Amino acid sequence: MFDNWVPINAKTVARWFVNHADRDAGEAITQLKLQKLVYYADAWFLANFNKPLVTENFEAWAHGPAIRSLYAKYRNHGWEALPREKGSHPDSNVAGFLEAVYDEYGQFSAKALERMTHDEDPWRRARGGLSPEAASNTVIPKLDIRNYYAAKIGKEEIKKLQD
C-alpha cells in the first residue's frame, strides 16, 4: 500500500487532525495535542512501513516531541482549540491510517499525551540529562522512533530507514 510512499508535509497531516475533531461532541485540538498526534502518526508509520510519514523532524522540546514549523503556524492560538482549516488533505489510504491513530490517541488530553511521550525512550534519549522543563532543539532521530515503536509490535530493529 505504501511501497512508493513519499513523505508529506507535517502541515497536511496536522490539517487532517484539526479538521477531523468532532466539535459537536466536544472534541478540541490544541497546538500541544496536535503536535503529539502528528508525532504518534509519524511514529506508527515508521514502525509499520520503515519510512517516515512526514518530511520534518521532531525536536525533543520540554512539552514533548514538536515540529518547529507546526509551532510557528499555530503558536498564536496558545492553549485554545484550533479552528477548522482549508487546504490539501492526505489521500484516502493515509486518511485511513490517520483515522486509526486518532481513534487510539485522540481520546487523550494534550497533557496526557505529553506525559506519554515523556515516558518513552525516543524523547528521553534525545533529551539526554536535561531537566524536563529545560529548552532543547535536539532532533529525535526517526530511526530511534521507528525502532522503539516497531519493538512494541514485535518487529526487529533496523539500521537504516527505507528511501
Rank of each mutant, 00 (worst) to 15 (best):
A81K: 13
G64I: 05
K51W: 00
Y39P: 03
S88M: 09
Y39L: 00
A47I: 10
H89Q: 15
E56Q: 14
A72L: 14
A81I: 04
E85V: 02
H89C: 11
V101H: 13
N93R: 14
P90Y: 11
R68V: 09
Y71H: 09
A81F: 03
E59L: 04
A60L: 08
V38A: 00
Y39V: 03
G64K: 02
G106M: 08
G106Q: 11
G78Q: 14
L98W: 10
A47W: 06
I67Y: 04
N93Y: 12
A95F: 01
Y39A: 01
F97R: 10
Y105D: 12
L53A: 01
N48R: 14
K86N: 14
Q107S: 12
L70V: 06
A62L: 03
Y105W: 15
A47N: 07
D42E: 12
W61H: 02
D91G: 11
E104H: 12
F45E: 05
S92N: 14
A81D: 10
R84Q: 15
S92A: 15
Y40P: 00
F58N: 12
L70F: 03
Y105M: 05
L70Y: 06
W61R: 02
E59I: 08
V54M: 01
L98Q: 12
P83S: 07
D91T: 05
F97K: 11
A43F: 07
F58M: 08
A47K: 01
R84E: 15
R68S: 09
N76Q: 10
N50S: 13
E85N: 07
E104C: 01
F49I: 00
Y74R: 05
P65I: 04
F45T: 04
L53E: 07
K73P: 01
I67F: 05
A72M: 09
G106R: 04
